[in-house]
């Protein structure tokens, strides 16, 4: 669906993206996971045709490069910044972009998208009165107004409360279930784990690895650990491929005050690939 080949971009002395190649498959939710400043947004901007790469190319399957305005009709972008007109109502924001996309039956389309993001009741209210979560949902709605087959969601849950985050995650799931291809950037590994069919780990502009969460964990996450807590003794960590067996043995030995199993996750993958935590 979307092919990025050997993309590179520098801003002065800063290397934002460094030889990144990637294939996003039709219908999948692809997560681009990396810390702030890793190059996720620049990659998205190049994929949208907004930033010209220094080297490399971007191609939408069967359509060409997104630098062509007509190719961009097939793309929807919810930028990290809330790109909305505060003094317009939600309906007016959506109608404005619908007209730019030369859509027919703008009113119906606006109503349908507002319904989709759960803002039907607030359509006639000005955006400046919306909560952060509502603005995020409207930001997503604008990206959906022309019903694009490929959606780019750049940190769509940045700065929202947990409840709104769950709403947005559910919304993305629902969009994915309709067969859309979604590229989802985030620095929250839980979101990537919950939503993404495949995840690419990006840091310092380089794509370090790509795969399903379980593939990445298997490749880089290391083994599972069982941590055993005993009275008056420091806790003991045992790495194992069979945690149940370790637990059974520990319990049979008695004097166990507590037990926990630590499974590798994307955080461990990131740590293994970059030598630092995702939250650093």
């Amino acid at each position: 669906m979307l092919r990025l080949t050997n993309l590179a971009k520098r801003f002065g002395d800063v290397v934002a993206v460094d030889g990144l190649s990637l294939d996003v498959r039709r219908g999948e939710v692809f997560g681009l996971l990396g810390p702030n400043g890793a190059g996720k947004s620049t990659t998205i901007s190049m994929a949208m045709g907004l930033v010209h790469p220094d080297t490399g190319s971007v191609e939408l399957e069967g359509l060409g490069a997104p630098t062509d305005a007509e190719v961009r009709r097939h793309l929807g972008l919810a930028p990290q910044t809330l790109a909305l007109y505060d003094d317009l109502t939600a309906e007016e924001n959506l109608a404005f972009f619908a007209k730019l996309y030369r859509l027919d039956r703008v009113r119906e389309r606006v109503a349908s998208v507002l319904e989709l993001v759960g803002l039907s009741q607030r359509g006639k209210h000005r955006v400046k009165g919306f909560s952060g979560g509502m603005q995020r949902r409207l930001n997503l709605a604008v990206a959906l107004i022309h019903d694009p087959p490929l959606l780019m969601l750049d940190e769509p849950t940045a700065g929202v409360d947990p409840q709104s985050r769950n709403n947005i995650i559910e919304l993305v799931r629902s969009l994915a279930s309709q067969g859309r291809t979604i590229v989802y950037t985030t620095h929250y590994m839980e979101e990537a784990s919950k939503l993404c069919d495949r995840v690419g780990i990006i840091d310092h502009g380089k794509l370090l690895d790509v795969g399903t969460v379980s593939e990445l964990v298997a490749r880089h996450g290391g083994t599972t650990s069982v941590v055993i807590e005993r009275l008056d003794v420091p806790e003991e960590r045992i790495t194992t491929t069979d945690p149940l067996k370790v637990i059974a043995q520990s319990l049979s030995n008695g004097d166990v005050a507590g037990l926990r199993v630590e499974r590798p996750d994307l955080e461990s993958v990131f740590l293994a690939l970059t030598g630092r935590s995702l939250r650093d």
Binding site: A69, E70, R72, L75, L77, P79, T81, A83, L84
Partner: peptide, 14 residues
């Protein structure tokens, strides 16, 4: 600065 220009740039307008 607010990103709406980015949105305009993404839309199919020159």
């Amino acid at each position: 600065s607010r990103g709406t220009l980015l949105r305009l740039a993404v839309a199919p307008v020159t």
